[in-house]
Nucleic acid binder design. Sequence first.
DNA 1: CTGGATCCCAATAGATACTG
DNA 2: CAGTATCTATTGGGATCCAG
Lengths: 137, 137
Amino acid sequence: MSNSGKHHQSGCPVAFGIDTFGDRWTLLVIRDMLLHGKTTYGDFLGSDEQIATNILADRLKHLEAEGIVEKDRDSDNRRSYIYTLTDKGFALAPVIFEIIRWSGNYIPFNKARKELLRKIEIDPEGFMKELKTAGKT
Amino acid sequence: MSNSGKHHQSGCPVAFGIDTFGDRWTLLVIRDMLLHGKTTYGDFLGSDEQIATNILADRLKHLEAEGIVEKDRDSDNRRSYIYTLTDKGFALAPVIFEIIRWSGNYIPFNKARKELLRKIEIDPEGFMKELKTAGKT
DNA sequence: CTGGATCCCAATAGATACTG
DNA sequence: CAGTATCTATTGGGATCCAG
């Protein structure tokens, strides 16, 4: 299931990489582990991008099958699982970092600000309230 | 058409990168320009991975819209187009290189050999014939 | 409760045939 | 040569169900 039939099998290392982690979700999960210290199914579900449960389960399964992620029982929680990156998974850090570097140069610089302005327009009072309570967390 | 509805809009640079070039074909086209000096629609179609014509057209259009690729008329050929990377496109080279580096460490080293062995098993005579005529191109 | 599996169906990607 | 049209396959969202 899932991503069979998508493999290029051309022998090209770029194609191999894409076949392994080149879908729209996999790298985000890896990012969560690498950059945000997320380790559980619930953690991943909580990310901003709102991955669906079936997609997440599928991707985790594949990452495990590929040896990029390891799944163990939480020794404390006993009914929870902990996902961690293997060396092979951790070795993707430079790829992620180069993507971040590239985006840093080319992401629309005012996207966040635009969001903010939209918020202000729609609900100025709510925004002001948010502003006042910000930084107290 | 194409990749609308897939954008994460989370503000995360990784998600931004994925939204821009994170599908299964875009990076391969960029690889062709970057590493193999390909410049025309026909060039891209000829790659090992066999991209479909509509996909290629779509991806080129998007790459152009994103300012990653530039499309100009071939000054010689006049009814042919030349696609070249912009600076923004060229700036993806480190991403590609890190993917190659990662794959270099983790790609199944014997994939090509396995293919070969399979061929030999299925059609030994055909294989021998291929072997004899190889290197004459 | 956490970590999934499953089903439905909408939307997207992709292969193939054909066209300006 | 450089695409478009059409039709099929796959992915993905969301709800719900299920097991430990």
